[in-house]
Write a protein that binds this DNA or RNA. Structure first.
Lengths: 143, 143
DNA sequence: GTTATTGCAAAGGCTTTGCATGGGG
DNA sequence: CCCCATGCAAAGCCTTTGCAATAAC
């Protein structure tokens, strides 16, 4: 697979969009973060690199990253949209601790298979899915 | 299981809350609707019954219905919180059509079991979960 | 009577958008 | 050079909240 940078440039070119300095910086900062980050958090990081970049540009660019397949949007149900990097990462789901808000990434092939079966039973072609298990993490249970 | 009305009254009493006319009406209207409805939609229905009830009261009451276990909140990722009735209904997940926005309710015991296993593998005690499969429904695929 | 609840309107939080200016192709 | 992208500030959208008036217990 090509680098995220190349992937993004291809996407921009294909859609007749400009490869601006701001877009490059947002991409770099996004790639440099681990885990799941909101636009606000990303904007803070971007600001450190170039304080002249506006929140609006970060919002606009992260949407492009999502559309181009580099970022995936996550919705943990708290009203904040977060993004994680899809590059070189296989699909995974999340365990979310409702006490400390920590998140564990999990993969379960058999669930994915059952989801496919379930969908085909209803003649439904699945595009993507999200599965989130809410509960208490080991650390919080000890307390 | 007791009726939703009784369940709600019990919840109100237990929490030293008043059984007001507005709360009764919101509950009745909620029980009279099928499927998944936003607060705004619920408010419209409530208005037909009593136009003096404010949106704020509907928002406040639906939260009580959720807390008391009568309603369950759903988040399909479009920024709107919807609610469905939990009374006399077993747990189910949803297939959401990204084209016509229709929603199919599904039950798959084996997935539930695997979710439990998955969680215990990480020493995580699951409270609730949500699983949504996004795709194209049979009707939309025919077009 | 006392306390909780309501309606109203305003504010909140996150996100999007209109517009004039500036930078990329 | 033309047009897209940006920054700014304002608006949008759903939802929550402060407050004085009102109704429940």
């Amino acid at each position: 697979m090509s680098s995220p940078q190349t992937q993004f440039l291809d996407y921009l070119t294909k859609n007749k969009m400009a490869a601006t300095e701001q877009r490059r910086i947002v991409l770099e900062v996004f790639l440099g973060t681990q885990g799941h980050h909101s636009c606000e958090e990303l904007y803070e990081h971007v600001s450190k690199r170039d304080s002249s970049i506006s929140p609006a540009t970060v919002y606009r660019t992260i949407k492009l990253l999502s559309d181009s397949g580099i970022a995936e949007s996550l919705d943990f149900g708290d009203g904040i949209t977060r993004f994680e990097c899809r590059h070189n990462r296989e699909h995974h789901d999340h365990l979310v601790c409702i006490r400390c808000n920590c998140r564990i990434e999990v993969v379960e092939e058999r669930i994915e298979e059952l989801q496919e079966k379930l969908a085909s039973k209803y003649d439904f072609s699945v595009n993507r899915h999200k599965m989130i298990l809410y509960g208490i993490c080991p650390d919080c249970r000890k307390q």
